[in-house]
């Protein structure tokens, strides 16, 4: 099986129909293991029990960036290789990425409240994730604003790639902006080497959430393929109605062009 094999939407649907249950099963098992292990994990000497939020926050934060990476590769697929499923993949990933980014922000601020005393801090890391979230929403708005998916695809692909290049720059400038105004109060997560008792559940959860994304993404891609199929069939239906009522008068030329447009 190669990437070319996947280029055929019909084959993609058939293949993923077989893969999807296994993927979902693996996700459920790994999630269960991860949740069990994080429940057993000891409290942190500094953060107390709130460290448990990390087990759900870190995978989501990781996915928020990983999904943009997936979308960037898909966008390259749209622009460079013209892979027929690339823009399907990019469009299907955006809402899922936005949801994970939202969760990263939410769990981050729920962790920040006990630790920092405030739900929101204009900390460099939080702020750049917030900008990432806005960019996800903007991308979704772009997909929604244009009715014809193939026309929206290129614009969205360009925006995704520009975002991928721009995000590190935004991150850097926000860092610079933040330290300029508020040097001391930024609390950092990293720095200390993580203990094994935290690291293992964290890794399991991260893998579980990545699998969860893969499952959701493939399912959403299938939906998107079906949606496009519905769309082109509806356009055929629209022109066929004209055919049945106008054919008697010999206006086949118009119908032929209609069907060509629909195909």
């Amino acid at each position: 099986m190669t990437l070319i094999d996947l280029a055929n939407p019909t084959r993609f649907l058939a293949l993923t129909a077989r893969v999807l249950p296994w993927l979902a099963g693996a996700t459920v098992i790994l999630l269960a293991v991860g949740l069990y292990q994080s429940a057993l994990a000891p409290d942190d000497y500094q953060q107390g029990a709130t460290v448990k939020i990390m087990f759900i926050h870190v995978p989501n934060a990781w996915l928020s960036m990983f999904v943009w990476g997936v979308m960037s590769i898909a966008s390259l697929g749209t622009l460079v290789w013209r892979h027929p499923l690339a823009d399907v993949a990019a469009k299907a990933a955006a809402p899922i990425g936005a949801a994970f980014t939202f969760l990263a922000l939410l769990t981050g601020s729920l962790w920040g409240r006990p630790m920092w005393g405030t739900y929101w801090e204009w900390d460099a890391r939080l702020t750049s994730v917030l900008i990432l979230f806005l960019m996800y929403l903007g991308l979704m708005a772009l997909w929604r604003a244009v009715d014809d998916p193939s026309r929206a695809a290129r614009a969205a692909a360009v925006l995704t790639l520009v975002g991928a290049i721009n995000l590190p720059i935004i991150k850097f400038s926000v860092d610079w902006w933040n330290t300029l105004h508020q040097p001391a109060s930024v609390m950092r997560m990293g720095g200390s080497t993580l203990d094994k008792s935290f690291l293992i559940p964290l890794l399991v959860m991260a893998i579980a959430f990545t699998l969860l994304f893969a499952t959701l993404h493939i399912a959403a891609m299938r939906n998107e393929i079906l949606r496009r199929r519905v769309r082109s069939l509806q356009m055929m239906q629209a022109s066929r109605v004209a055919f049945s009522s106008e054919s008697s008068a010999g206006s086949r030329a118009e119908n032929a062009s209609n069907e060509a447009g629909a195909a």
Binding site: W122, L134, L137, G138, A141, W177, H181
Partner: peptide, 17 residues
């Protein structure tokens, strides 16, 4: 979305105080 973006931009202009 525009509302969100405009409001998020403001702290960058006035600082994170």
């Amino acid at each position: 979305l525009f509302f969100l973006t405009v409001v998020v931009l403001m702290p960058f202009a006035v600082g994170p105080d």
